[in-house]
Design a protein around this nucleic acid. Structure first.
Length: 622
RNA sequence: GGCCCUGUAGUCUAGCGGUGAGGACGUCGGCCUUUCAAGCCGAAGAUCGCGGGUUCGAAUCCCGUCGGGGCUACCA
């Protein structure tokens, strides 16, 4: 007979899933993944020694990091696209990536005090002062620096969490830095409290930044609206070097232009009207305070190639690239300028972002070239799709991380599921803790096509993680859900026993609350279908006898209850089920749930007797 | 429309010139059991988008084609 597992509140992972859990725990070094609430549990383990080799040649380190992973993988993937080294290759009439515009002295001069102008990735500029320079390449050649750069327009989207997580995994894996930057350059879309919500969600997930907004760091500020001076300065450099120009076109003119282009069947692109503006007139209109933007110049006839870590080389014809606005008329930069400038200044080595950015990458490449900076490695991750194959959005149901948190998902469960959306380990494992993922994740195993968000599978994976948790952690995590359900919090000891008794039955934290009210209060009604099925002619009388027996039962324990019930059934000449089912109905009001005897032990004699009697009174005589 | 990405069961995926195309979710059935879950066993489900070509042999290589998606803003 199966012994109830609820006798004591165990600390170890429970039953079946522990198999999966421990199988999945390889000897990888524990990364510091710490979900906000609760902790410990089986997630903790001692560090062992599977470190990545850290001694590598400077140039190699970067490209290796992403392509390396398991040896077999590396071999297998070879030939998918040329082994890349740096992020981009630029062909055509230009000077290619080696053209070095040394950081202009003027820009350096006018940057905010204490603001380092690293140019770490850039070509060493011969004349620059070099005490600082000297040690930088060193550091950057080893240090992987990745970032998550959301714009605070609301909540954290699950797709955003996946992107952040991939970045975080890369940083953890390489002992690098995961940075959070807030891209709030669109003042019309700002949402109050969004930054806090973003951080709260990341914290909950345990995908926490090592550096950046709210946590600080040496290369801040990390909020773009606080870096306006820098963008202005950088835009000025571009103006100075002839890579950008002022544009005074009104939005009306622009709209009209676009309409005409479309009507002619052409693609809508800025017609470069202001590029030809007479310098003197430009100056005049500027001093007159006429509203204007700054646009970047795009050369014709160049082929711009991104060496994407996930897709291989992707080429664009520069003649088809629009002359993007870099600085808006309100003095804020657009994404393109701000992101490039910040990624460089913040010494980002790998830009891992959503696929929606792939088409604007050629502009970014050009900006790196104009500034004379070396671009980072790029990797564009596929989109997360809804059931009809479109980019997952609000209209498709729950897309905010907060929603999943409220539904009772575990951060590990959500993260595990999200990681598997577009990435696979190469073997057939599917259960991973975040730190395990940090040991095996690599960009070259990320798929290129979008993935549909499958709620069923998310629930399943979350269930796996639920079963791998220590009871004590579950108690901690479940408690807040009582508040939310408007129920008094149970005694932690009692809740622990409920959780043990529930065993494999929970896939969500809320499964310990809403679906099992009978653990916390007497049933207020009885499921009609179950009454019909289980409350038979002989039931009331049997319940009467059973109640009497319970009163005199010495130990109100699983074993004793089991024995007593079976003895009673035998003496009455009925099957045990004749007693078991009506009892369950009387105690819970429903037809299914945990094993009856362990449940009775948890509920206790008093409660059981009371409910049995209530049922006899309230249930109709069949 | 243009540019770019992409295409293995309903869904997530493995696959890298020779496999009965493997695994997972979901579905259906069985076992276990007092129920429900979980677990275990089993089944159905994929003309590898389609058409050509290369090859003794193609999901894998080439060409074409169709479908889906992203971008095409003084949004990110």
């Amino acid at each position: 007979m199966g012994q109830p597992a609820f006798r004591s509140t165990k600390e170890a992972p429970r039953s079946t899933a522990s198999r999966a859990a421990s199988a999945a725990i390889s000897g990888l070094e524990a990364a510091s993944w710490t979900p906000k609430q609760g902790s410990v549990g089986p997630l903790r383990r001692s560090a062992s020694s599977l470190r990545m080799p850290r001694t590598r040649g400077p140039a190699k380190a970067i490209s290796d990091m992403v392509t390396t992973a398991p040896k077999s993988t590396q071999r297998r993937r070879k030939g998918r696209f040329p082994p890349l080294v740096r992020g981009a290759r630029i062909r055509g009439s230009g000077q290619g990536e080696d053209m070095g515009h040394p950081d202009s002295a003027s820009a350096r001069r006018s940057l905010p005090a204490g603001f380092p102008l690293p140019a770490v990735n850039g070509p060493a500029s011969p004349g620059s002062s070099s005490a600082v320079r000297a040690h930088l390449p060193h550091r950057s050649s080893i240090m992987v620096r990745v970032r998550f750069a959301p714009s605070p327009t609301g909540y954290l989207h699950v797709g955003g969490l996946r992107t952040a997580f991939y970045n975080w995994l890369l940083a953890r894996r390489e002992g690098g830095t995961f940075l959070l930057r807030i891209e709030d350059t669109d003042r019309t879309r700002l949402v109050e409290g969004a930054v806090e919500a973003l951080l709260e969600a990341l914290n909950w997930a345990g995908v926490t930044p090592d550096e950046g907004a709210m946590v600080g760091g040496p290369l801040g500020p990390y909020v773009q609206s606080e870096r306006l001076e820098i963008y202005r300065e950088m835009a000025a450099r571009l103006l100075e070097s002839g890579h950008a120009y002022h544009c005074f076109c009104t939005s009306e003119r622009l709209t009209e232009m676009r309409e005409q282009q479309m009507a002619r069947g052409e693609s809508a692109m800025y017609d470069r009207h202001c590029r030809a503006l007479d310098p003197a007139e430009c100056r005049r209109r500027l001093t007159a305070g006429e509203p204007h933007v700054i646009r970047m110049k795009i050369p014709d006839g160049r082929t711009l190639t991104v060496e994407d870590q996930i897709r291989g080389p992707v080429s664009f014809d520069s003649s088809l690239v629009d002359e993007q606005v870099l600085m808006k008329s309100d003095g804020f930069p657009t994404y393109h300028l701000a992101a490039v400038v910040d990624d460089h200044l913040m010494e980002i080595t790998h830009v891992v972002r959503g696929e929606e950015w792939l088409s604007s990458t050629p502009k970014h490449l050009l900006l790196y070239e104009y500034f004379g900076w070396q671009p980072p490695v790029f990797a564009h991750v596929p989109l997360i799709l809804n059931a009809s194959g479109k980019k997952l959005s609000k209209r498709d149901g729950d897309v905010s991380v907060e929603a999943y948190r409220e539904k009772g998902y575990l951060p590990e469960g959500l993260l595990n599921f999200l990681a598997l959306l577009g990435w696979s380990p190469g073997d057939e494992r599917e259960f991973f803790t975040p730190q395990e993922l940090a040991g095996v994740f690599s960009l070259d195993r990320v798929r290129k096509s979008g993935a549909v968000f499958d709620f069923d599978k998310l629930l399943h994976i979350n269930g796996l993680h639920m079963r791998a948790q220590a009871t004590s952690r579950l108690v901690e995590l479940v408690m807040p859900f009582f508040d939310r359900a408007g129920r008094p919090r149970p005694d932690p000891e009692y809740l622990a026993r409920v959780i043990e008794v529930m065993g494999e039955r929970a896939n969500l934290l809320t499964d310990y609350v809403e679906p099992i009210p009978y653990f916390y209060e007497d049933p207020s009604e009885y499921e009609p279908a179950t009454v019909k099925k289980r409350w038979k002619a002989g039931s009331p009388e049997l319940m009467e006898a059973w109640a009497a027996r319970l009163e005199s039962l010495e130990d109100f324990t699983h074993d004793a209850l089991d024995e007593a019930l079976r003895a009673l059934a035998e003496s009455r000449g009925v099957g045990a089920g004749q007693l078991i089912h009506p009892t369950r109905l009387a105690l819970t009001g429903v037809g299914n749930g945990p094993g009856l005897f362990e449940m009775m032990e948890v509920l206790g004699r008093e409660v059981c007797l009371r409910r049995l009697r209530q049922a006899m009174e309230r249930l109709p005589r069949p």
